[in-house]
Design a protein around this nucleic acid. Structure first.
Lengths: 228, 228
DNA sequence: GAGAGTTATGGAACGTCGTTCCATATACTT
DNA sequence: AAGTATATGGAACGACGTTCCATAACTCTC
């Protein structure tokens, strides 16, 4: 069962976990969450469904692995970029962009709670929060707030993208539909939702998201630095 | 197509959207997300799958409706309970408890982005943030952070519960498994994850969650009140 | 109250999915 | 060359969401 160096054995186009994951990512990007099926996957890889199961435990495993590949690339690309807070901002933005480029990642990340992809993000944030000199017993709280906020936004965006795809809407007509929905709510029961509905149509998700990150970061009282 | 008062027409045990939703909630509570199938549902309701489709558009609609029923009850129960911040805390806790009592709600809520269940929570939080006297242009940011944090935690908990159920673990052995996993990570790559792994085993999710809410609330600079 | 028309029901059937099974092929070891 | 572990891919299974349709239950009109 020990995996030894197996490179360049077998024939060139042999199946491998990596090749399967890569094809899965393509499929997910092209056709959304529903696009990833073992039939579509085996067709793309010119093999049968059974062969895939030699390398992959099941579909859940596959989805987590695909998600992890995306997250790992993103984390590596944003290794260190300055002050702790700047690094956290960069990482958070990296996650946002990755989840926008691969709309299925948001959902997959949440389903992979406690597993490798989330731990990668957790670790990255955790190290920076430590570097901020935050008291040991509040480090976890801050990291948890940041991580869960990121996951929440990602999940919402993924759900929105999925909805838009299913109903054949582009981004602007989708936002329009939501804004119309919210405006039609009962005036006395939903004053707040109605008041923000208008701004919905031409707001920038990315800017709002970053404002949220900054709000959380602003609340941090580090011993080592007070600046942004 | 207008729905008129139809009460006490039909025979007593007739199908209805409400009865279907109630049965769905029971099924979801008992057997998790995978437990809700149209076959199991029609068996419980002593009917056929086709009959259900007269009242429900599709499974996604059903899940959102079931989720909304839970959220609506919870919101109603926590209408107003004191200061704005206290009300937000109460609502946040209500959401947590509801999502713990119904482990599938976390996932369902995320999938229902922008729809009624999330809007209920958004509205409730929004009204309180308004009452805090927060500047109009930052209201949305604060509400968004709170909502997405809540959804993130709920999603993670739901995923954890689903994982535990699938693998037949109770809560403590699940936490143990995660802690063991994290402790086995590479020492130089994952110092933070390893450092918090131990505390994992006997931490209180609910307390951590509330600490996160308080952290966010503490960052709010309202014009009307400075106290908690 | 009898017939027409709507509303509601439930069982059968369709197509697709994740997954398992197994006969077979390929590569490594002796 | 023979034998064994590794790897493949097509066929088949059972369960699912959904659709279809014959029919039942109820309402309305005369």
């Amino acid at each position: 069962m020990v995996k030894k160096a197996r490179s360049s054995q077998r024939r060139e186009d042999s199946l491998s976990r990596d090749r399967i994951i890569e094809a899965s990512i393509e499929l997910l990007d092209e056709s959304g969450e529903d696009g990833l099926t073992f039939r579509a996957l085996s067709e793309r890889l010119a093999t049968g469904p059974g062969a895939i199961y030699w390398h992959i435990a099941n579909k859940s495993d596959l989805l987590v692995a695909a998600c992890d590949a995306i997250v790992a690339r993103m984390v590596d690309a944003h290794a260190i970029s300055g002050s702790p807070k700047a690094t956290i901002r960069a990482l958070a933005l990296g996650m946002f962009d990755a989840m926008e480029a691969h709309a299925w990642v948001g959902t997959a990340l949440i389903r992979a709670a406690g597993q490798l992809p989330t731990v990668r993000v957790l670790e990255c944030i955790g190290q920076q929060v430590r570097a901020l000199g935050v008291a040991a017993d509040t480090q976890w709280t801050i990291v948890s707030v940041l991580l869960n906020y990121i996951l929440g936004v990602g999940g919402q965006n993924a759900a929105n993208a999925q909805f838009a795809r299913t109903h054949g809407l582009d981004r602007s007509s989708f936002l329009d539909a939501v804004a119309t929905d919210w405006s039609a709510l009962d005036a006395s029961d939903y004053p707040f939702a109605r008041s923000v509905a208008g701004a919905m149509r031409d707001h920038d998700d990315r800017v709002d998201y970053l404002a949220g990150i900054d709000l959380i970061l602003a609340g941090i009282k580090g011993t080592r630095t007070g600046r942004t």
